[in-house]
Design a protein around this nucleic acid. Structure first.
Lengths: 189, 189
DNA sequence: TAATTAAACTAACGCTTGTTAGTTTGGTCA
DNA sequence: TGACCAAACTAACAAGCGTTAGTTTAATTA
């Protein structure tokens, strides 16, 4: 654990405020107040408001991409891969709930990085769908509309950021386990 | 079908813009441009930007409340009630996807009506949870964490506004049917 | 002690925001 | 024709926005 720099503190505080009110509704003066300083002082550490959003969203998006790549390239059943996807979401979300809120709700306010973000998201969803389709072909998964299955799973996983902070008693492993039961074993053959 | 008033047109256009960029990022000048007029002219028809948000969100929230009340008071199995809840979401969302986006993402920008909205949402979730708990007691539903089940279902249903516009080929009945299979029959005994 | 540096500050900028006031336009009806 | 009215307009406002420039403070290092 390397110590948190002042810049990191600002990014994390920004993520918390973005979660509460959304990127556009948070002003640099709001952020400064939350940090106990004046707005102008923020610029000793950061370049712009837009850079904060980029720092929050892109790093998480790349975590998902890397995790998915590992899963896709692994040798296991498609059901096991889906369980790994559930764990991936639970783990990333549990350790950055505020950032996940920005990723879900404020990605459209990315400017320079918008195209890159959309590319990552698109690839991710295609990989996800591929696992489901192969699972159906291999008779591991019920013969049902693959896009409906992905939509349902992904909706739930993307909403985790809202739920995990309210249920601190559940640890990440237990939660991933419960979710897998509801989401995956439910669609199992 | 009563004819759409100019005010209704403005509200619907606002909902569309709010869906794309969020309430805070949409300016009255954006809205005016989309309507083909000047910002000041909007105020011949509406009172304030805030009133637009209220008009969009509260009416939908009350639709959900009314629908849930009917379901709760009906005489049917708990599984059937859950299927009715799925249909309720599909129907309301299918016929106002833009408004659903605001309800999901911009409710926190309600001012005077925030408390009322939160009350409706809280009651709705309590009723939802109650159906699941009674379904478990009656052995209609797997013995699993009721809150995880609700969270999973509700996450999916709340994300419908994103998905329905992309799948116009599916009609509401087919979609509700597919979703019920994935969401409910999956957790059936 | 003197020099350096990270991190705060004050003051201000040009621009955008939601909104108000008063005016003009063009169609409807007595 | 003349009165009326819905619905647009122009012009402007005070407040708030992100950001820059230059300065002060207090602790660390040479």
């Amino acid at each position: 654990m390397k110590p948190e720099t002042r810049k990191d503190e600002i990014i994390n505080t920004a993520a918390k405020l973005f979660k509460e009110k959304g990127y556009s509704a948070v002003t640099m003066r709001d952020l400064a107040t939350a940090m106990g300083m004046k707005a102008a002082s923020l610029y000793n550490h950061i370049n712009s408001k837009q850079d904060l959003l980029k720092a929050i969203i892109i790093s998480i998006a790349e975590e998902f991409t890397n995790g998915m790549t590992t899963i896709i390239n692994s040798e296991m059943s498609n059901i096991s891969k889906l369980k790994r996807v559930v764990t991936l979401h639970v783990d990333i979300t549990a350790n950055n709930t505020n950032g996940m809120a920005s990723l879900n709700n404020d990605w459209m306010h990315l400017e320079d990085q918008l195209e890159y973000y959309l590319q990552l998201r698109d690839d991710y969803e295609n990989n996800f769908l591929q696992i489901i389709k192969e699972g159906i072909l291999a008779s591991e998964i019920k013969q049902s509309n693959p896009e409906v299955i992905m939509f349902s799973m992904l909706s739930t996983l993307r909403s985790l950021y809202l739920w995990i902070p309210k249920k601190e008693d559940l640890n990440a492993n237990d939660l991933a386990q419960s979710l897998s039961e509801v989401l995956i074993d439910g669609i199992n053959t």
